[in-house]
Amino acid sequence: MSDEINETLLNADLKVVNLGLESFALELTQQGVEVVHVDWTPPAGGDPALAELLSKLGV
């Protein structure tokens, strides 16, 4: 398992999916790191009951 973390993260080229603060993505981009910034909004329009249902149904 430790080898897997080394291979897939610590000693791999970092490629980031950024959810939340856009400044984190911008700073990574400036450093030449490949980043995809997600235009995130609360799932299910922020309805906790629906979000709970979704998590049970698995998306």
Binding site: L9, V17, N18, L19, G20, F24, V36, D39
Partner: peptide, 22 residues
């Protein structure tokens, strides 16, 4: 811009880290 991690991974399938600040 993708709206979800799922769609972001279609753009860069070999991404290896999610940085989450939601």
């Amino acid at each position: 811009r993708p709206r979800s991690t799922r769609a972001a991974l279609k753009q860069v399938p070999d991404s290896n880290l999610a940085l989450i600040s939601v």
